Amino acid sequence: MPENASSLPALRWTVRPGVRTWRCAPAPAEVRDFHAALPGYAPTPLTELPPLAAELGVGRVFVKDESCRLGLPAFKALGASWAVHRVLAERTAAGSGPGPVTLVTATDGNHGRAVARTARLHGQHAHVFVPRGVHPRAVAAIAGEGAEVTEVAGPYDEAVRRAAEAAVTPDAILVQDSAWPGHERIPGWIVEGYSTLCAEIDEQLAARGVREGPDLVSVPVGVGSLAQAVVTHYRSPDRGRAPALLSVEPEAAACVLASLVQGEAVSVATGETAMAGLNCGTPSSLAWPYLYGGLDAAVAVPDSAGARAVARLAALGVSSGPCGAAALAGLHAALTGAGADERRTALGLDATSVVVLLSTEGTAANPHRTAE
Protein backbone atom coordinates (compact mmCIF):
# COMPACT_ATOMS: atom_id res chain seq x y z
CA MET A 1 0.00 0.00 0.00
CA PRO A 2 2.72 2.54 -0.87
CA GLU A 3 2.05 6.22 -1.35
CA ASN A 4 4.32 9.16 -2.04
CA ALA A 5 5.23 10.50 1.40
CA SER A 6 5.39 14.09 0.17
CA SER A 7 1.70 13.92 -0.76
CA LEU A 8 0.51 12.73 2.66
CA PRO A 9 -1.23 15.14 5.06
CA ALA A 10 -0.44 15.03 8.76
CA LEU A 11 -1.76 11.85 10.38
CA ARG A 12 -4.80 12.34 12.62
CA TRP A 13 -3.78 10.20 15.55
CA THR A 14 -3.82 10.18 19.34
CA VAL A 15 -2.21 7.80 21.83
CA ARG A 16 -3.11 7.37 25.49
CA PRO A 17 -0.40 5.83 27.70
CA GLY A 18 -1.35 3.71 30.69
CA VAL A 19 -4.86 2.60 29.74
CA ARG A 20 -3.94 -1.08 29.59
CA THR A 21 -4.37 -1.30 33.36
CA TRP A 22 -8.05 -0.23 33.14
CA ARG A 23 -10.52 -3.05 33.85
CA CYS A 24 -14.27 -3.66 33.50
CA ALA A 25 -16.75 -6.52 33.94
CA PRO A 26 -16.88 -9.09 31.11
CA ALA A 27 -19.89 -9.84 28.90
CA PRO A 28 -22.29 -12.57 30.09
CA ALA A 29 -21.05 -16.07 29.25
CA GLU A 30 -24.48 -17.18 28.00
CA VAL A 31 -24.25 -14.95 24.91
CA ARG A 32 -21.92 -17.38 23.16
CA ASP A 33 -24.17 -20.34 24.02
CA PHE A 34 -27.16 -18.47 22.57
CA HIS A 35 -25.41 -17.84 19.27
CA ALA A 36 -24.03 -21.37 19.08
CA ALA A 37 -27.61 -22.69 19.23
CA LEU A 38 -28.84 -20.57 16.31
CA PRO A 39 -29.48 -22.32 12.97
CA GLY A 40 -26.54 -21.77 10.65
CA TYR A 41 -24.12 -20.60 13.36
CA ALA A 42 -20.42 -21.19 12.76
CA PRO A 43 -17.37 -19.18 13.84
CA THR A 44 -16.22 -16.83 11.10
CA PRO A 45 -12.69 -17.41 9.75
CA LEU A 46 -9.56 -16.02 11.39
CA THR A 47 -7.19 -15.85 8.44
CA GLU A 48 -3.45 -15.44 8.85
CA LEU A 49 -1.79 -13.17 6.28
CA PRO A 50 2.03 -13.50 6.45
CA PRO A 51 2.61 -10.95 3.64
CA LEU A 52 0.97 -8.25 5.79
CA ALA A 53 3.11 -9.20 8.78
CA ALA A 54 6.24 -8.79 6.63
CA GLU A 55 5.04 -5.47 5.21
CA LEU A 56 4.18 -4.04 8.64
CA GLY A 57 7.20 -5.38 10.52
CA VAL A 58 5.34 -7.52 13.05
CA GLY A 59 5.35 -11.24 13.82
CA ARG A 60 1.90 -12.40 12.70
CA VAL A 61 -1.22 -10.70 11.30
CA PHE A 62 -4.66 -12.31 11.47
CA VAL A 63 -7.89 -10.99 9.93
CA LYS A 64 -11.24 -11.84 11.53
CA ASP A 65 -13.33 -12.18 8.38
CA GLU A 66 -16.97 -11.18 8.99
CA SER A 67 -17.99 -11.33 5.32
CA CYS A 68 -20.53 -14.07 6.12
CA ARG A 69 -22.08 -14.09 9.60
CA LEU A 70 -25.35 -15.96 10.12
CA GLY A 71 -26.19 -15.54 6.44
CA LEU A 72 -25.47 -11.81 6.31
CA PRO A 73 -22.33 -10.04 5.02
CA ALA A 74 -21.36 -8.34 8.31
CA PHE A 75 -20.94 -8.96 12.04
CA LYS A 76 -24.07 -7.00 13.01
CA ALA A 77 -26.30 -10.09 13.22
CA LEU A 78 -24.55 -11.00 16.49
CA GLY A 79 -25.83 -7.90 18.27
CA ALA A 80 -29.25 -7.76 16.65
CA SER A 81 -30.07 -11.42 17.32
CA TRP A 82 -29.12 -11.28 21.01
CA ALA A 83 -30.86 -7.93 21.62
CA VAL A 84 -34.10 -8.98 19.92
CA HIS A 85 -34.03 -12.27 21.83
CA ARG A 86 -33.78 -10.31 25.10
CA VAL A 87 -36.49 -7.84 24.04
CA LEU A 88 -38.99 -10.54 23.12
CA ALA A 89 -38.20 -12.65 26.18
CA GLU A 90 -38.80 -9.62 28.39
CA ARG A 91 -42.14 -8.93 26.71
CA THR A 92 -43.21 -12.53 27.23
CA ALA A 93 -42.19 -12.45 30.89
CA ALA A 94 -44.16 -9.24 31.37
CA GLY A 95 -47.30 -10.87 29.94
CA SER A 96 -47.46 -8.70 26.83
CA GLY A 97 -49.89 -9.82 24.14
CA PRO A 98 -48.79 -12.30 21.47
CA GLY A 99 -49.28 -9.86 18.59
CA PRO A 100 -46.23 -8.69 16.63
CA VAL A 101 -44.33 -5.53 17.45
CA THR A 102 -42.36 -3.25 15.15
CA LEU A 103 -38.61 -3.15 15.71
CA VAL A 104 -37.41 0.34 14.76
CA THR A 105 -33.83 1.38 14.03
CA ALA A 106 -31.62 3.76 12.07
CA THR A 107 -28.71 2.44 10.06
CA ASP A 108 -26.00 3.07 7.51
CA GLY A 109 -26.73 -0.42 6.18
CA ASN A 110 -25.55 -3.49 8.07
CA HIS A 111 -27.25 -3.01 11.45
CA GLY A 112 -30.60 -2.20 9.84
CA ARG A 113 -30.47 -5.27 7.65
CA ALA A 114 -29.58 -7.43 10.66
CA VAL A 115 -32.53 -6.05 12.65
CA ALA A 116 -34.84 -6.56 9.67
CA ARG A 117 -33.66 -10.16 9.17
CA THR A 118 -34.02 -10.95 12.88
CA ALA A 119 -37.50 -9.40 12.98
CA ARG A 120 -38.60 -11.49 10.01
CA LEU A 121 -37.27 -14.70 11.56
CA HIS A 122 -39.25 -13.96 14.75
CA GLY A 123 -42.44 -13.02 12.92
CA GLN A 124 -42.12 -9.34 13.85
CA HIS A 125 -42.19 -6.13 11.79
CA ALA A 126 -39.23 -3.82 11.17
CA HIS A 127 -39.05 -0.12 10.30
CA VAL A 128 -35.60 1.10 9.29
CA PHE A 129 -34.52 4.73 8.83
CA VAL A 130 -31.64 5.24 6.40
CA PRO A 131 -29.61 8.49 6.14
CA ARG A 132 -28.32 10.10 2.97
CA GLY A 133 -25.30 8.54 1.31
CA VAL A 134 -26.32 4.90 1.70
CA HIS A 135 -26.13 3.08 -1.61
CA PRO A 136 -29.50 2.16 -3.18
CA ARG A 137 -28.50 -1.50 -3.24
CA ALA A 138 -27.93 -1.45 0.51
CA VAL A 139 -31.36 0.13 0.97
CA ALA A 140 -32.87 -2.51 -1.30
CA ALA A 141 -31.23 -5.28 0.74
CA ILE A 142 -32.92 -3.97 3.90
CA ALA A 143 -36.27 -3.78 2.14
CA GLY A 144 -35.67 -7.27 0.82
CA GLU A 145 -35.76 -8.54 4.40
CA GLY A 146 -39.37 -7.36 4.60
CA ALA A 147 -38.70 -4.09 6.44
CA GLU A 148 -40.42 -0.76 5.90
CA VAL A 149 -37.65 1.65 4.89
CA THR A 150 -37.73 5.42 5.36
CA GLU A 151 -34.95 7.37 3.65
CA VAL A 152 -33.86 10.51 5.50
CA ALA A 153 -32.38 13.53 3.73
CA GLY A 154 -30.00 14.26 6.61
CA PRO A 155 -26.97 12.48 8.15
CA TYR A 156 -26.91 9.41 10.40
CA ASP A 157 -27.63 11.35 13.60
CA GLU A 158 -30.81 12.74 12.00
CA ALA A 159 -31.90 9.22 11.02
CA VAL A 160 -31.40 8.12 14.64
CA ARG A 161 -33.56 11.01 15.85
CA ARG A 162 -36.32 10.09 13.39
CA ALA A 163 -36.20 6.43 14.43
CA ALA A 164 -36.46 7.34 18.11
CA GLU A 165 -39.52 9.47 17.38
CA ALA A 166 -41.15 6.63 15.45
CA ALA A 167 -40.65 4.16 18.29
CA VAL A 168 -42.75 5.94 20.92
CA THR A 169 -45.94 3.97 20.19
CA PRO A 170 -46.84 0.99 22.44
CA ASP A 171 -46.35 -1.55 19.65
CA ALA A 172 -42.89 -0.29 18.62
CA ILE A 173 -39.45 -0.92 20.16
CA LEU A 174 -36.27 0.99 19.32
CA VAL A 175 -33.43 -1.46 18.63
CA GLN A 176 -30.67 1.11 18.14
CA ASP A 177 -26.98 0.33 18.63
CA SER A 178 -26.17 3.93 19.54
CA ALA A 179 -27.06 4.89 23.10
CA TRP A 180 -27.99 8.12 24.88
CA PRO A 181 -29.39 8.84 28.37
CA GLY A 182 -32.69 6.98 28.60
CA HIS A 183 -31.82 4.55 25.80
CA GLU A 184 -29.01 2.35 27.06
CA ARG A 185 -30.41 -1.07 27.99
CA ILE A 186 -31.04 -2.35 24.43
CA PRO A 187 -27.75 -0.92 23.08
CA GLY A 188 -26.11 -2.74 25.98
CA TRP A 189 -27.62 -6.02 24.80
CA ILE A 190 -26.39 -5.32 21.27
CA VAL A 191 -22.86 -4.81 22.60
CA GLU A 192 -23.12 -8.05 24.59
CA GLY A 193 -24.00 -9.83 21.36
CA TYR A 194 -20.76 -8.75 19.76
CA SER A 195 -18.78 -10.53 22.50
CA THR A 196 -19.14 -13.82 20.62
CA LEU A 197 -16.78 -12.48 17.95
CA CYS A 198 -14.05 -11.90 20.55
CA ALA A 199 -14.58 -15.28 22.20
CA GLU A 200 -14.10 -16.93 18.82
CA ILE A 201 -10.83 -15.05 18.31
CA ASP A 202 -9.46 -16.37 21.61
CA GLU A 203 -10.25 -19.94 20.63
CA GLN A 204 -8.93 -19.57 17.08
CA LEU A 205 -5.66 -17.96 18.20
CA ALA A 206 -5.13 -20.68 20.80
CA ALA A 207 -5.58 -23.29 18.07
CA ARG A 208 -2.78 -21.50 16.14
CA GLY A 209 -0.45 -21.58 19.15
CA VAL A 210 -1.17 -18.04 20.38
CA ARG A 211 -2.42 -18.79 23.88
CA GLU A 212 -1.77 -15.42 25.50
CA GLY A 213 -3.92 -13.56 22.98
CA PRO A 214 -3.00 -10.81 20.54
CA ASP A 215 -0.63 -7.91 21.15
CA LEU A 216 -2.87 -5.47 19.27
CA VAL A 217 -6.44 -5.45 17.98
CA SER A 218 -7.44 -2.92 15.31
CA VAL A 219 -11.18 -2.18 15.23
CA PRO A 220 -13.27 0.05 12.92
CA VAL A 221 -15.44 2.53 14.83
CA GLY A 222 -18.76 4.24 14.09
CA VAL A 223 -20.63 5.10 17.30
CA GLY A 224 -18.30 2.76 19.18
CA SER A 225 -20.49 -0.24 20.05
CA LEU A 226 -18.16 -2.87 18.59
CA ALA A 227 -15.18 -1.09 20.12
CA GLN A 228 -17.00 -1.18 23.47
CA ALA A 229 -17.40 -4.95 23.11
CA VAL A 230 -13.70 -5.30 22.25
CA VAL A 231 -12.66 -3.16 25.23
CA THR A 232 -14.99 -5.12 27.52
CA HIS A 233 -13.48 -8.41 26.38
CA TYR A 234 -9.82 -7.47 26.50
CA ARG A 235 -10.00 -5.34 29.66
CA SER A 236 -11.88 -7.87 31.81
CA PRO A 237 -10.23 -8.75 35.15
CA ASP A 238 -9.77 -12.44 34.31
CA ARG A 239 -7.47 -11.75 31.36
CA GLY A 240 -3.74 -11.93 31.68
CA ARG A 241 -1.68 -9.76 29.38
CA ALA A 242 -3.80 -6.96 27.92
CA PRO A 243 -3.35 -6.08 24.24
CA ALA A 244 -3.17 -2.62 22.74
CA LEU A 245 -6.50 -1.54 21.24
CA LEU A 246 -6.54 0.77 18.20
CA SER A 247 -9.73 2.40 16.92
CA VAL A 248 -10.01 3.45 13.27
CA GLU A 249 -12.45 5.99 11.80
CA PRO A 250 -12.90 7.79 8.48
CA GLU A 251 -11.50 11.32 8.43
CA ALA A 252 -15.00 12.50 7.50
CA ALA A 253 -16.51 11.23 10.78
CA ALA A 254 -13.84 10.90 13.47
CA CYS A 255 -16.05 11.52 16.51
CA VAL A 256 -14.24 9.07 18.82
CA LEU A 257 -10.81 10.47 17.97
CA ALA A 258 -12.08 14.00 18.60
CA SER A 259 -13.66 12.91 21.87
CA LEU A 260 -10.47 11.22 23.11
CA VAL A 261 -8.48 14.35 22.30
CA GLN A 262 -11.02 16.53 24.13
CA GLY A 263 -11.32 14.15 27.10
CA GLU A 264 -15.11 14.10 26.81
CA ALA A 265 -17.70 12.85 24.33
CA VAL A 266 -18.24 15.41 21.57
CA SER A 267 -20.18 15.50 18.31
CA VAL A 268 -18.57 16.32 14.96
CA ALA A 269 -20.05 17.35 11.63
CA THR A 270 -19.81 14.43 9.22
CA GLY A 271 -19.00 14.47 5.52
CA GLU A 272 -19.25 11.96 2.70
CA THR A 273 -17.28 8.74 2.95
CA ALA A 274 -17.23 5.32 1.28
CA MET A 275 -17.01 3.93 4.82
CA ALA A 276 -20.76 4.50 5.17
CA GLY A 277 -21.23 2.28 8.22
CA LEU A 278 -18.65 4.37 10.13
CA ASN A 279 -20.16 7.73 9.13
CA CYS A 280 -21.33 8.68 12.64
CA GLY A 281 -20.94 12.03 14.33
CA THR A 282 -21.57 11.20 18.00
CA PRO A 283 -20.16 8.40 20.17
CA SER A 284 -22.67 6.18 21.94
CA SER A 285 -23.14 7.38 25.53
CA LEU A 286 -22.97 3.76 26.65
CA ALA A 287 -19.74 3.08 24.77
CA TRP A 288 -17.94 6.30 25.67
CA PRO A 289 -16.76 5.38 29.22
CA TYR A 290 -15.30 2.14 27.84
CA LEU A 291 -13.63 3.86 24.90
CA TYR A 292 -12.14 6.51 27.16
CA GLY A 293 -11.09 3.93 29.73
CA GLY A 294 -9.65 1.26 27.47
CA LEU A 295 -8.56 2.47 24.00
CA ASP A 296 -4.80 2.83 23.64
CA ALA A 297 -4.92 4.86 20.45
CA ALA A 298 -7.19 6.21 17.72
CA VAL A 299 -6.49 7.08 14.12
CA ALA A 300 -8.54 8.60 11.27
CA VAL A 301 -7.94 7.56 7.67
CA PRO A 302 -9.04 9.01 4.30
CA ASP A 303 -11.19 7.07 1.86
CA SER A 304 -8.16 6.60 -0.40
CA ALA A 305 -6.41 4.60 2.35
CA GLY A 306 -9.53 2.52 2.87
CA ALA A 307 -9.72 1.76 -0.86
CA ARG A 308 -6.10 0.61 -0.91
CA ALA A 309 -6.77 -1.63 2.08
CA VAL A 310 -9.79 -3.17 0.34
CA ALA A 311 -7.62 -3.95 -2.69
CA ARG A 312 -4.77 -5.34 -0.57
CA LEU A 313 -7.05 -7.68 1.34
CA ALA A 314 -8.72 -8.79 -1.89
CA ALA A 315 -5.32 -9.65 -3.35
CA LEU A 316 -4.71 -11.84 -0.30
CA GLY A 317 -8.06 -13.60 -0.63
CA VAL A 318 -10.12 -11.69 1.97
CA SER A 319 -13.43 -10.09 0.93
CA SER A 320 -13.70 -6.82 2.84
CA GLY A 321 -15.75 -3.68 2.27
CA PRO A 322 -14.49 -0.19 3.08
CA CYS A 323 -15.63 -0.33 6.71
CA GLY A 324 -14.01 -3.69 7.36
CA ALA A 325 -10.79 -2.77 5.55
CA ALA A 326 -10.52 0.36 7.73
CA ALA A 327 -8.85 -1.86 10.35
CA LEU A 328 -5.95 -2.48 7.97
CA ALA A 329 -5.89 1.10 6.71
CA GLY A 330 -5.58 2.39 10.27
CA LEU A 331 -2.87 -0.08 11.25
CA HIS A 332 -0.92 0.75 8.10
CA ALA A 333 -1.20 4.46 8.85
CA ALA A 334 0.03 3.90 12.41
CA LEU A 335 3.00 1.69 11.53
CA THR A 336 4.34 3.45 8.43
CA GLY A 337 5.38 6.97 7.43
CA ALA A 338 6.85 9.80 9.47
CA GLY A 339 6.79 9.09 13.22
CA ALA A 340 6.07 5.38 12.75
CA ASP A 341 8.82 4.29 15.16
CA GLU A 342 7.34 6.40 17.95
CA ARG A 343 3.82 5.11 17.25
CA ARG A 344 5.05 1.52 17.15
CA THR A 345 6.75 1.99 20.51
CA ALA A 346 3.64 3.61 21.99
CA LEU A 347 1.59 0.59 20.91
CA GLY A 348 4.18 -1.83 22.32
CA LEU A 349 4.80 -3.57 19.00
CA ASP A 350 7.94 -5.27 17.75
CA ALA A 351 8.97 -7.87 15.18
CA THR A 352 7.36 -10.69 17.23
CA SER A 353 3.97 -9.07 17.89
CA VAL A 354 0.64 -10.71 17.00
CA VAL A 355 -1.97 -8.38 15.47
CA VAL A 356 -5.68 -9.02 14.83
CA LEU A 357 -7.64 -6.91 12.34
CA LEU A 358 -11.42 -6.92 12.61
CA SER A 359 -12.79 -6.94 9.07
CA THR A 360 -16.38 -6.20 9.99
CA GLU A 361 -18.03 -6.60 6.56
CA GLY A 362 -17.58 -8.22 3.20
CA THR A 363 -17.74 -6.45 -0.13
CA ALA A 364 -21.40 -7.48 -0.52
CA ALA A 365 -22.31 -5.40 2.54
CA ASN A 366 -21.13 -2.13 1.00
CA PRO A 367 -21.68 -1.73 -2.74
CA HIS A 368 -19.72 1.53 -3.04
CA ARG A 369 -17.08 1.40 -5.75
CA THR A 370 -13.71 1.34 -3.98
CA ALA A 371 -11.19 0.94 -6.79
CA GLU A 372 -9.25 4.04 -7.72
Score class of each variant (00 low, 15 high):
93 A>C: 13
186 I>Y: 06
177 D>E: 15
281 G>R: 05
193 G>D: 07
163 A>I: 03
369 R>N: 06
357 L>W: 00
18 G>Y: 11
331 L>H: 00
174 L>F: 06
23 R>A: 15
367 P>K: 10
337 G>K: 07
40 G>S: 08
343 R>D: 01
138 A>I: 13
8 L>V: 14
350 D>V: 03
122 H>C: 15
84 V>Q: 01
7 S>G: 12
266 V>H: 13
87 V>Y: 07
211 R>A: 13
204 Q>H: 10
155 P>L: 02
170 P>M: 09
336 T>G: 01
138 A>E: 15
90 E>Q: 14
343 R>Q: 00
316 L>S: 07
104 V>Q: 03
13 W>E: 03
77 A>G: 01
350 D>L: 03
162 R>Y: 03
85 H>C: 05
167 A>W: 06
319 S>C: 08
119 A>S: 12
144 G>P: 01
245 L>G: 02
302 P>R: 05
156 Y>D: 00
23 R>C: 14
40 G>V: 08
71 G>H: 11
261 V>Y: 05
140 A>H: 10
275 M>F: 02
360 T>F: 04
7 S>E: 13
278 L>Q: 11
335 L>G: 01
295 L>H: 01
301 V>L: 11
35 H>P: 06
325 A>H: 07
159 A>T: 01
263 G>N: 04
11 L>W: 07
336 T>A: 07
235 R>M: 11
278 L>M: 15
67 S>M: 05
28 P>R: 09
358 L>V: 14
323 C>R: 00
273 T>L: 07
221 V>S: 03
210 V>F: 04
